[in-house]
């Protein structure tokens, strides 16, 4: 039932909104993973990030595409929790630090075992609009036990202006979605965050909405 709901929400609301109200400058669509288990690592500026990324997938594969989202925020009130769980089918992630270290990624592992494509924001938070914050090491530890899983880096730009943190009014802007090649394997967490930062830095110049006239 939830599957149908999710497909309907995307077909009727989110896909048209993303196409007409926002507009996406997409580059490298063919590099997006078609089948799971896989991970998409994107930079984070806005609540719209996950929705826009998900809207790029064909409807039939949408049930498998799930954003990893902070439980402390998205499950905080009933209404938001209902939307997050039933319409988006998020993978809840507890970032408060109270969970046992071994259990931290339990929900993610479960989803990957299930063959899902996870959308993950390794910066951990939206941060200040349109700036890439320091990449956290969490993703490396999630991958440590699963070397077979490909991580596809994606850089997004522009959505921080359409709907920044703390704003409720959506103002239409085009956004860039630049998909990169899967990351090579890394041996330690420092090397991993460096590889991912480099991948982001390489993709950023393709963004049209960066207006670097200086």
């Amino acid at each position: 039932m939830d599957k149908v709901l999710k497909i309907a929400v995307f077909a009727l609301i989110i896909k048209p909104l993303a196409l007409l109200m926002l507009g996406i400058n997409l580059r490298g669509r063919e590099k997006l993973p078609h089948t799971g288990p896989a991970i998409i690592a994107a930079n984070h500026n806005s609540h719209l990030d996950a929705l826009v990324l998900m809207s790029l997938f064909p409807l039939h594969s949408l049930p498998k595409v799930r954003p990893v989202a902070a439980a402390d925020y998205f499950l905080s009130n009933r209404c938001l929790a209902w939307l997050s769980v039933h319409c988006l089918n998020i993978v809840p992630f507890n970032r408060s630090g109270q969970t046992e270290p071994g259990q931290l990624f339990a929900t993610c592992h479960q989803a990957l075992d299930n063959g899902d494509i996870l959308i993950l924001f390794p910066e951990g938070s939206r941060g200040s609009p349109e700036k890439i914050s320091k990449i956290k090491k969490g993703l490396f530890y999630l991958l440590k036990d699963r070397p077979d899983i490909k991580v596809t880096p994606v850089v997004m730009h522009g959505l921080g202006r359409a709907l920044p943190k703390g704003e409720a009014l959506l103002v239409p802007f085009n956004c860039d979605v630049i998909v990169g090649d899967p990351l090579p394997e890394s041996t330690d967490s420092v090397a991993f965050t460096r590889t991912l930062s480099l991948a982001f830095a390489e993709l950023l110049p393709y963004c049209l909405t960066r207006h670097d006239s200086e």
Partner: peptide
Amino acid sequence: KEFLSIVPTRMTDRRVIF
């Protein structure tokens, strides 16, 4: 929309752009 997405505008201009 396309024009305002590529030219430099300030975050505080959002409501004016609306």
